[in-house]
């Protein structure tokens, strides 16, 4: 234990001996982890958004003006049996108009002059989780296109697009994240490699007086560990601060329009932060491992 402490002090001394190099490495790692944290935050919030959109998924059936009661009942019957349907509500043209008005809010003036029965009678359907599957939903929509039904609308096409966007965003973030991580790895590994060259004579002497490989390597691992830990601490702390600020003042960073989506920025769960923080030491150790490979032969 005391020995580890000695090693740690040595590692610190060594890092201080080349402050520019260590500083640059630290800064790079910090930026990398800031980026990774921001990606994590965005991804987490997008996933939450997708989930809430999926939960509020609706479909509507619009009846033609001439639809008979029997025709309407046939539609209701299908809905009652479908596993995709959580429930439905029938709206008269007047009710539909009232709901539309309230949704438009201050813009309802544009409806001025339209009759109360301007909108068709309709059924608003709340979907179950199974209703998220576009293929299933399309099949239900086909079944519902009976005589007396003017149109069936569902948000699947839009949802699919959103899903595709999410997937692409996730893939992009993953690719950029990996690239950035790789860059950090190269930086750490190069920093340690330079330190090894710098201390080549010392390493040779230590080995000649009987030092084991581990004895020679541990200080370098500690240096890598230190760089990685401090760097990730720096980046993650910054991201955490950023996230806290955005939560306090959502309008500060988000474009105006997005507020209407009821987007409520949420912080990562603590497990996420811990995982990000652990990434630093891991990066340091792997980077050191890469550079120590074959340099210590004596």
């Amino acid at each position: 234990m005391a020995r580890l402490f000695t090693f740690l002090r040595q590692a610190l001394t060594h890092l201080r001996r080349s402050p520019l190099l260590a500083g640059a490495a630290l800064l790079t790692i910090g930026v990398v982890f800031l980026l990774l944290s921001v990606f994590g935050l965005l991804g987490y919030n997008l996933a939450l958004l997708a989930e809430s959109v999926g939960q509020n998924l609706q479909a509507s059936v619009f009846f033609s003006d001439t639809a008979s009661e029997a025709e309407r009942e046939a539609v209701r019957e299908i809905l009652r049996r479908s596993p995709l349907v959580a429930g439905f509500e029938e709206l008269t043209p007047a009710q539909a108009m009232a709901r539309f008005r309230s949704r438009l809010g201050p813009d309802q003036a544009i409806l001025e002059g339209l009759g109360e029965d301007w909108l068709p009678a309709s059924l608003e359907i709340r979907l179950t989780a199974a209703g998220r599957d576009p293929a299933e939903m399309e099949r239900l929509a086909q079944a519902l296109r009976l005589p007396g039904v003017e149109d069936v609308q569902h948000g699947q096409a839009w949802l699919e697009q959103f899903d595709r966007f999410l997937r692409a965003a996730r893939l992009g973030a993953l690719a950029v994240g990996l690239l950035v991580l790789l860059a950090a790895l190269v930086i750490v590994s190069n920093t340690i490699r330079l330190a090894v060259y710098d201390r080549q004579d010392e390493i040779v002497i230590l080995k000649l007086v009987g030092a084991s490989d581990a004895f020679v390597k541990v200080p370098f691992y500690l240096e890598g560990l230190l760089l990685g830990s401090l760097g990730s601490l720096l980046g993650v702390a910054l991201a955490w601060l950023l996230s806290a600020v955005v939560q306090l003042e959502p309008g500060w960073l988000l474009p105006e329009g997005l507020g209407a989506l009821a987007l409520e920025p949420r912080n990562l769960p603590w497990e996420g932060w811990v995982a990000l923080l652990c990434g630093g030491p891991a990066l340091g150790v792997i980077g050191t491992r890469l550079s120590l490979g074959r340099h210590l032969r004596v």
Partner: peptide, 18 residues
Amino acid sequence: RHLVRRKIGVVFQDFKLL
């Protein structure tokens, strides 16, 4: 190798001090 080296004390001609 280090196990053998530990049995040998060496005074180097050029000292090899750190």
